[in-house]
């Protein structure tokens, strides 16, 4: 955590986006068909309607129809299907995306 903070600090100092230097999670959503998440922590749970992915500081709950995890690699998760809802769950409370 400390390392990540340091990296974030340096990138902020250099005027760069935060995800360039550290292992900060990054999410790319393509339409409502595909979600790419870089640097996740783990895949918590998986069904065809509900995918729960743990990030360092939050959890993402993806709900939809016929969901399928296309690729599950150490630094990347790709979820495909018809996505209806993407939800962040932080420790403080819920935040809807």
């Amino acid at each position: 955590m400390r390392r990540r903070d340091g990296a974030a600090f340096i990138s902020k100092l250099a005027g760069l986006p935060e995800d360039v230097t550290g292992h900060v999670p990054r999410m790319t959503i393509i339409g409502n068909k595909q979600i790419l998440i870089h640097h996740p922590e783990r895949l918590e749970q998986f069904t065809d309607q509900d995918v729960l992915i743990k990030l360092p500081e939050a959890k993402i709950r993806i709900t939809g129809k016929l969901l399928e995890v296309k690729e599950l690699m150490p630094s990347e998760i790709v979820v495909e299907g018809t996505i209806t809802n993407v939800q962040f769950e932080t420790k403080q409370g819920k935040c809807f995306g």
Binding site: Q45, F46, M73
Partner: peptide, 19 residues
Amino acid sequence: SLFPGRLHECGAVLVHIHY
């Protein structure tokens, strides 16, 4: 439904995970 996540934690690569 928890099994792929556990494997992923060990460092395995999984593709086409289908429920």
